[in-house]
């Protein structure tokens, strides 16, 4: 069972490393969007550090959205999604593996470039720690939520914009709690409560989302 999980993740990573632009493009997009804000709003460090959490999180959301399209599309087109459904392993389990692979390719790079953005937006150390934590917990939730939307729209010809319509509203709570945590951190207050809330949401998403995704994929593939 665990072998199947590793196998799916490995395949996805290998396929992604073969087309490296697939990994790099969303990251570049993320960095460029964040860069646009100081250029549009002026380079006042106090202003930037105040709005940094919102900017970084909105950019992360948009970058995640861009990368989602590929999550199930290739497998849908070449029929490996149907293969997955026929395999002896539960679909929800295999889907979790795919999402984990997707997070490694999109969420993890965002985490890795976040120090750079913290420097760009003159975030203080405390705020950066909070940002890092919220990204660490929040991006997997985004991947799980987004995968539901992808699974629902993968069979449609024009699924792209619809995906953002149905997925973005659900990601609002993550955005709110994350930015509140970072704000609290930048004022030197404790932000553990928000982190706990995000963790609770992550646990909920990990346990429930794979089943919703599996059900949605069954609708899309039939």
């Amino acid at each position: 069972m665990f072998d199947a999980f590793v196998q799916v993740v490995r395949q996805d990573l290998l396929a992604a490393f073969r087309h490296q632009s697939a990994i790099l493009n969303p990251i570049w997009f993320f960095v460029i969007v964040v860069t646009l804000f100081p250029l549009g709003l002026g380079s006042d460090p106090t202003l930037l550090s105040r709005i940094a959490p919102g900017i970084i999180w909105v950019a992360a959301l948009l970058a995640a959205l861009l990368s989602f399209e590929r999550l199930f599309k290739d497998d849908f087109i070449d029929g490996s999604l149907e293969q997955m459904m026929l395999s002896p392993y539960p679909l929800a389990w295999l889907v979790s593996a795919k999402i984990f692979g997707h997070w490694v390719l999109t969420g993890l790079p965002i985490l890795l470039v976040s120090p750079l953005l913290a420097v760009f937006l003159s975030l203080k150390m405390d705020a950066f720690c909070a940002l890092f934590l919220t990204l660490l917990i929040g991006t997997p939730i985004l991947s799980l939520l987004g995968a539901i939307g992808v699974a629902l729209t993968v069979g449609l010809r024009k699924g792209g914009i619809l995906l953002s319509l149905i997925m973005l509203p659900f990601s609002i709570p993550i955005l709110i709690f994350s930015t509140m945590a970072i704000e609290a951190a930048s004022f030197g207050q404790s932000y553990l409560g928000f982190i706990a809330l995000l963790l609770a949401m992550l646990v909920g998403a990990i346990t429930l989302a794979p089943f919703a995704i599996a059900a949605a994929l069954r609708v899309s593939v039939s």
């Binding site: 629902l152 729209t153 449609l156 024009k158 699924g159 619809l162 319509l165 149905i166 509203p169 659900f170």
Partner: peptide, 11 residues
């Protein structure tokens, strides 16, 4: 959320 559901249904 309502709009998303309606849009998905119509798609």
């Amino acid at each position: 959320v309502y709009m998303g559901i309606i849009a998905l249904y119509n798609a």
